[in-house]
Computed example of a mutant assay.
Amino acid sequence: MKYIISLFFLIISFSSFSQYKYLKDSSYTSPFNYLSGATSINSGQFWDEDEFRIPIGFQFWLFNEPIDSLTIFSGNIITSNPDPDNAQYLNCIVANGSDLIDRDTSMNGSLSPISRQVTGTAPNRICKIEWRNAGFYNAIDLGEYADSINFQIWLYETSNIIEAHFGNSYQISNNSLLFDDGPGVWFGAIDSLSLMTSDSRISYFFTGNPSSPTLDSAFSFANMIAPPGVNGIPTSGMVYRLTPKAQGAVNTGYSQSFEQEPYLINYFNEYRLIKIDFFENENTPYSIYDLNGKIVKEGSLSKGLNLVHTDAFASGMYLLKIHSNIQKESFKFIK
């Protein structure tokens, strides 16, 4: 049996978007320059759903995780996990949000090189990852081969800043086709994405006008009508930046965090919501008690995402008990 329990004391409803808490955003313009003398990632070979494991060249903090290497999968998703297809949770960077593919439809070589380069000197190096002349699978699948995009992801040593740099693009097909019914390019970062439920601790993404975007956040993608993103493809020279508010620190943004199999528990003092991802088919009752032993709330957990609101609770300590037929578990939390 596995519960993944995160305690969020959230003022807004779970399904809505919220202002970001632990990353801040900015955007600016800077001439886009292709990498010169970079190391090939795809080694001149056609790529589609391939996975590439690459070194960063220095230690980088992705949320509360120190990493020195990355995996690129699904064309443009970057994660620290060496085996993302079998991972339960992923910290990841969404570089583009589309299903990208090499434009060499003969599959005999590559017309869309992916490369890597580290510039600068310690402790201020930058790891740059470039997608050049990348194609869009959805368009190519319908016989439209002209659409292409050029962009880079920059990871900064010490500051742990993440940037997306956009170059020239060529677009024939509409945004809905290229970006899987989304409005356009999706650049952002996701803390602890569950591949089973599409939920996360927190997810950040740029939205709105691609020339002056805003940063939004969400906890779940399961109930979204369409994927997030800016409206269209940013023009050449646009740069989107994510800067951690607390850099290089364990438990960034969390008041308390620890793991104990089979649980992952996180406390956020700002929120008024308990989020429970439940991975058993059985319906399991739960109860919440105050310090006097009085039941203040009870209900039943079903498989998938469960939300328990605590807005009506008085300030104090509470005990959440999960009454499983297999094992009974208790968790203390403070509102």
Results as ranks from 00 to 15, higher is better:
Val239Gly: 04
Lys332Leu: 13
Ala189Ile: 08
Asp50His: 12
Ser40Pro: 07
Gly232Arg: 06
Gln45Ser: 14
Ser110Phe: 10
Asn168Glu: 15
Ile190Ala: 07
Thr310Glu: 09
Asn96Gln: 10
Phe279Ile: 08
Pro113Gly: 02
Ala95Gln: 02
Ser112Asp: 03
Ile93Thr: 04
Tyr28Ile: 06
Phe14Ala: 12
Pro244Gln: 07
Asn81Glu: 15
Phe32Leu: 05
Phe331His: 09
Phe14Cys: 09
Tyr137Gln: 05
Pro285Ala: 06
Ile101Ser: 00
Tyr145Thr: 07
Arg116Val: 06
Ser26Leu: 09
Val239Ile: 15
Ala139Asp: 07
Leu177Lys: 00
Asp180Met: 11
Pro262Glu: 04
Gln256Ile: 12
Lys24Arg: 13
Phe219Pro: 00
Gly299Thr: 02
Lys303Arg: 14
Pro234Lys: 07
Arg53Gln: 13
Asn306Lys: 01
Asp216Tyr: 00
Phe63His: 12
Arg201Tyr: 15
Tyr170Gly: 14
Leu100Thr: 02
Ile265Trp: 07
Phe206Ser: 01
Pro31Gly: 04
Asp290Glu: 10
Lys303Trp: 00
Ser287Tyr: 11
Ser192Gln: 14
Asn150Lys: 01
Ile295Ser: 04
Gln19Arg: 09
Ser110Ala: 11
Gly57Tyr: 04
Pro84Lys: 05
Ser36Arg: 03
Pro82Cys: 05
Val308Thr: 05
Ile78Val: 08
Pro262Asp: 08
Tyr240Pro: 06
Thr119Glu: 13
Ser15Gln: 13
